[in-house]
Design a protein around this nucleic acid. Sequence first.
DNA 1: TGATAATTTGACCGGTTGGTAAAACATTAC
DNA 2: GTAATGTTTTACCAACCGGTCAAATTATCA
Lengths: 216, 216
Amino acid sequence: MVLPRAAQTQRRTRIQEEKEELILEAALDVFATHGFRGTTIDQIAEVAGMSKPNLLYYFRTKEAMHRALIDRVLDSWLDPLREFDAEGSPVSEIRSYIRRKLEMARDFPRESRLFANEILQGAPHIEDELKGPLKSLVDEKAEVIRSWAKAGKIAKCDPYHLIFAIWSTTQHYADFDVQVRGVLGEERSGDGRFEDAARFLEQLFVSGLEIRDGGA
Amino acid sequence: MVLPRAAQTQRRTRIQEEKEELILEAALDVFATHGFRGTTIDQIAEVAGMSKPNLLYYFRTKEAMHRALIDRVLDSWLDPLREFDAEGSPVSEIRSYIRRKLEMARDFPRESRLFANEILQGAPHIEDELKGPLKSLVDEKAEVIRSWAKAGKIAKCDPYHLIFAIWSTTQHYADFDVQVRGVLGEERSGDGRFEDAARFLEQLFVSGLEIRDGGA
DNA sequence: TGATAATTTGACCGGTTGGTAAAACATTAC
DNA sequence: GTAATGTTTTACCAACCGGTCAAATTATCA
């Protein structure tokens, strides 16, 4: 892994800090909507308002930009799941997990789409992360959910598929935004749709996991 | 819109039928995993086992192949929703809708990913379809769901977000397949995961929509 | 201020891309 | 069989792609 020239300077400068930030911001824009292969360096350069060789002075390759983004985003993307607390009450934990994930879909849709693109295209750059850190975290939280079910606090259910369901329903509002807005129509496409979604999903998951008489 | 040379022949031949099918099959493969811009004609040609100019004899441009695929798939993709029957019992209608959507995710994952890619990238080729036919169909079915709620057959809920939830949870198993398998691990990544998902989702939606005493 | 280090640019390169033209080849109808 | 029709290939093109290089420019600091 050869370093870009900017990283070979004697000290890290203010300009490096700023430009790298600027580039990653632009790259996020483009990668999120076109995927890795559909993105060109020229496009990123244009969005960032700088020339291509200048961009390559800070990141040696397109891969390097993509990796920097993935690394930065992957971590923060899993934060809501990490906060999932075994000691809390199941209903409020699940409720606030949904809420946090929905907030991320609303506030960081590009980050969500960056991942969605990557996964859709077979996760060629993050397979290890999926099978390593991500799997471990999910395994851990699945165990928490299972213990809740065993203790009779929520209905018995497959904890993995519960997590998948929360992921997919919430991220849907970032990844499939165009479709959601198209179907809801102009009038209902304001920010209110996130409130409506939150209300619906909380109802669905909370009462969907409640224990009932005939409950299997 | 200029026609490809194959369409300019006097009659439609057997070879045309076969080759166009072959090409669309290959194109589905590639578009589904790389998106429109990430796909090259050469790639499609290689998968189809024919030369690029030969391919362009049947479809004049990359756009033409993509559009042919979208048109073909969009229709069949909405079939499960069309079958949604106002006269049926809500629980069994929702249950079988989930089941059908999951079967499609299992049996036609490429078709699902083709759409996912398209939507993710801003639906540049199907915006009209989203706001037209798709919206109309959803509006119609949302009205059905609303009437069920009004009649006290299911809990009150936002019918649009209910439909989004069913879409996202089921399509997740096609679109995010790599992630699902990564998280579940080798052992649990057999076809059984679709059975598990079906069981979980039916439980979630059915009891999530049941009317209860404290019901909202 | 001037020297040094850091940044930016323009010109360029080999490979790939979407697509074309025309000739060679295969199939079909008579 | 042969002529017309339909199909495939070879050779090609201009634009674009990821990336390099060296020179020009700008910022930093003694």
